[in-house]
Design a protein around this nucleic acid. Structure first.
Length: 637
RNA sequence: GGGCGCAUGGUCUAGUCUGGAUAGGGCGCUUGGCUUCGGACCAAGACGUCCCAGGUUCAAAUCCUGGUGCGCCCGCCA
């Protein structure tokens, strides 16, 4: 019994049946038969087809058409005993299968009804655990849309893995020791009134930073003072460290408000200061120095540095310098050094030196913990896969970290380290830069606010008599959905040029279109009254009904395919989040077409009851997909 | 210099991994559809050298080779 035979996956089941039918008749193995199955370009031709005649043509020294002709009679024989298949036809060399519509509807709707909220979830990867790091925004500014892309990608990946059975640990990384933090600490030390009334702390810091950066670049004395602050920050007991800790905490709390609006939550925050002062680096250093390619140089330009020698490796042979520094001559870590130690921690290669304290309780009711020098020990546990959601620009350093794990002998962990890469979000004429302040006006909060305002106007038009609370709540859900969906429907390796007109377009391929289709189905179910249960579903055979049923059936297989597509390449692991968005859009489109031409409540029995059950199945499936991609499902809008 | 990614109607984009039948959508444009379960909807139409040149194949947007254009990466920085 293969996974596809599992009843929680109707489309996979169907593919399995067709594949084994093709295999048994033609003699090719099941995998090859499965490879040959595709969906014909026009449903008139069939629901599924096989091109196996083409691939057999050469080895049988026979024309593909002739081969298809020969296989047709035995296939017809087999198909007649397949419950879900009605008939098989030949069109030239193509062999096309037709689903038995009257038995398909009860199968699909029965599955959706039986599984309910769990429809779309499978247990293929049960007992497996994954750790995902995202979005790791510096605690010195508000999220802009680029950070939001990272966060939404990470959150959706985490959901997707959970839907195929993974247990997922969601981790954020807080770099509280970077230069930006030193600069801001220096600035706050000089005294400042703090944020004006109503200004979020992260926005306040972000704007303050633009000015500080200017001083840093132009004023040598200021620059020296800031370097000194950076040095003092390394001592966790210093006044600067205390001030910085307070500042960073307030900033992270403010950033979390943005995350919560988007429905994004974490289990742990790993702070850089914990990495620096917990003893993790010292342990990492010991392990690293036991590796043949890693050494402390005794002479030359990099005398005293702990380096990894890379020129023996094919993928790094063209570097200008064969040595990559992990620890500087003064003993401090480089980014790469800290990242290697962090990656080792994620896999449990190094014993967990961290202590944890609650950071805050999130709106989902779960406490997010931060690493700390105080607090309690916690057990992260074994992790099978690690996914780091990081911009494509970081592909080289990410690859380097995984290579070092490999050099250390942790081949398995290296292989299971994934860089989920994505391109930047930019403007037509500029990129977002923290230093230059080009992000101003394009923070996640501002984009969400504007989306909400626009949605609010639409809600007002349609529901003038509704309560303020209702209007606000719907507007917020529409705004959040629109922003998440916009970021998800683009393939991660494609740059997104942010345009207000596109981000706030609520028609067509957009979240409100999905939410609207859901709300309309909700209305029908409310008016239809209670459960019918006994409906004769075999009457659902018209094209609009059948097309919708096929889309419903495809959901679990789509999630499985996206996970199967997480293939690791040399420079990153691809995550087709756009396929999830695309599936949701297809489903909504087919429902809207059905809605337009198939009356439900006004239909005669037994059609009426059957269509109500179809609407119910759509309602359940759409709610589940929306949950998966994090777009709020709205009952009424 | 080396590496990675991208290139598809006016515009934005799916499909490329794993070759298969008339290249699918969104926005915009033209036109039609509510005495009807919600028009954030549906239907019809116009718009294409799938960057270029070769090659492989019964079959190429998809694979191979060589180009072109754009973006990014290659520090004891952050």
């Amino acid at each position: 019994m293969t996974h596809e035979d599992n009843i929680d996956n109707p489309w996979g089941h169907l593919l399995g049946r067709v594949s084994s039918t093709v295999a048994s008749v033609t003699g090719v193995d099941v995998d090859r038969a499965k490879q040959s199955i595709e969906v014909p370009p026009d449903p008139i031709l069939g629901d599924l087809s096989t091109t196996v005649a083409f691939s057999l043509a050469r080895e049988l020294r026979e024309s593909p058409v002739r081969i298809a002709e020969d296989f047709l009679p035995p296939l017809e024989e087999q198909v007649s005993s397949e419950a879900l298949l009605e008939r098989v036809e030949r069109k030239g060399p193509y062999i096309n299968f037709f689903i038995d519509r009257s038995s398909f509807a009860p199968t699909v709707i029965g599955t959706v009804a039986a599984l309910g909220d769990a429809y779309g979830r499978t247990t293929r990867h049960a007992e497996r655990r994954a750790l995902i790091e995202y979005p790791a925004v510096n605690p010195s500014k508000p999220w802009h849309i680029g950070h939001t892309r990272n966060a939404v990608l990470g959150d959706t990946l985490a959901n997707t893995l959970e839907w195929v059975g993974y247990e997922v640990v969601r981790v954020d990384y807080i770099n509280d020791l970077g230069l930006q933090i030193a600069q801001l600490t220096w600035r706050l030390k000089k005294g400042d009134d703090g944020p004006a009334q109503g200004v979020k702390y992260d926005h306040y810091l972000g704007r303050l930073y633009v000015g500080v950066q200017e001083a840093f670049e132009t004023d040598a004395a200021a620059q020296e003072e800031i370097r000194e602050v950076a040095r003092r920050l390394e001592d966790p007991t210093s006044d600067e460290a205390r001030l910085s800790r307070e500042m960073v905490t307030r900033c992270v709390r403010a950033q979390c408000q943005t995350a919560y609006r988007l429905g994004i939550y974490h289990h742990y925050q790993v702070w850089e200061s914990s990495i620096a002062h917990s003893g993790l680096l010292e342990r990492a250093k010991e392990v690293l120095l036991s590796c043949d390619n890693i050494e402390q140089l005794e002479e030359g330009e990099k005398k005293g540095c702990i380096v990894v020698r890379l020129d023996t490796l094919e993928e790094f042979k063209d570097l200008k310098d064969p040595y990559k520094v992990l620890f500087r001559s003064d003993g401090t870590r480089t980014y790469t050094g800290a990242d290697v130690a962090f990656q080792m921690w994620k896999f449990g290669i190094l014993e967990d030196p961290f202590r944890y304290e609650p950071f805050e309780e999130q709106p989902n009711g779960e406490v997010v913990y931060r690493t700390s020098l105080e607090g309690d020990k916690r057990e992260i546990g074994r992790v099978d896969e690690v996914y780091n959601v990081i911009a494509s620009a970081q592909a080289h350093p990410q690859r380097l970290i995984y290579t070092i794990l490999d050099l250390l002998g942790y081949h398995e962990q290296s292989e299971r380290s994934h860089h989920i890469a994505y391109e930047f979000v930019g403007l037509e004429d500029a990129d977002f830069s923290g230093r230059k302040g080009t992000w101003i006006g394009y923070t996640c909060d501002e984009v969400l606010d504007r989306a909400r305002e626009l949605a609010r106007q639409e809600v007002e038009k349609r529901n003038p008599d509704a309560s303020e609370e209702f209007k606000d709540s719907v507007a917020e859900s529409v705004g959040v959905g629109a922003v998440r969906y916009m970021l998800l429907k683009a393939s991660p390796d494609r740059k997104i040029t942010f345009r207000w007109s596109e981000a706030l377009d609520f028609n067509g391929d957009s979240a409100p279109y999905l939410q609207y289709s859901y709300a309309r189905s909700q209305r029908i179910l409310e008016r239809a009254g209670g459960q019918t249960g006994q409906a004769d579903l075999s009457v659902l055979t018209d094209d609009p009904e059948f097309n919708l049923l096929k889309a419903l059936a495809r959901f679990p297989q789509t999630v499985i395919d996206v996970v199967a597509g997480l293939k690791k390449g040399q420079w990153g692991t691809s995550f087709s989040c756009n396929r999830l968005a695309g599936y949701a859009y297809d489903l909504a489109t087919l429902y809207n077409k059905f809605y337009d031409v198939c009356p439900v409540l006004r239909a005669e029995e037994p059609l009426r009851s059957a269509r109500v059950e179809l609407v119910r199945a759509f309602n359940t499936t759409m709610r589940n997909v929306l949950g998966l991609i994090g777009v709020p499902a709205i009952e009424r809008m």
